[in-house]
């Protein structure tokens, strides 16, 4: 399973990078969403995969009995998911606002900060 998951993550990353190389900022944004999913999977899988043993402690016990899933990456991924959502929401607002102000979603046409130099 680890092998297949690694390959899947690779494909996910490849598609997101391809999207992020587009000059349409909307597609860039889609790439960002895919990439944050891929990164979450990377963090999660790096803590090793365990089937059917959530990191919970039974009633009355002081510590889990027997091996359970690694809790630490789960906590990290939880944080990452929420932050990723915040990032996406903000970026979406930014794209929307940019389109309203500049009338384009093509990053090559957004040149207020870096105007095209006069051709020599």
């Amino acid at each position: 399973m680890e092998l297949l998951l690694a390959v899947t993550i690779g494909i996910l990353v490849a598609t997101s990078v391809y999207m992020m190389l587009d000059r349409n900022v909307l597609r860039f944004l889609f790439g960002l969403v895919l990439l944050s999913n891929a990164v979450n999977l990377v963090i999660f899988a790096a803590g090793r995969l365990t089937v059917g043993a959530p990191p919970l402690i039974a009633d009355g016990a002081y510590a889990p009995d027997g091996p359970i899933a690694n809790a630490l990456p789960q906590a990290l991924v939880l944080t990452a998911i929420v932050i990723g959502f915040g990032l996406l929401a903000f970026a979406l607002a930014l794209v929307y606002r940019t389109y309203m102000s500049l009338g384009t979603v093509n990053s090559d046409e957004m040149r207020i900060a870096e105007p095209e130099e006069a051709k020599k």
Binding site: E2, L12, A14, L21, A45
Partner: peptide
């Protein structure tokens, strides 16, 4: 894109 994906896969 393929390169980045491959690097990530091998990294994993």
């Amino acid at each position: 894109a393929g390169g980045v994906g491959a690097v990530i896969t091998f990294l994993m």
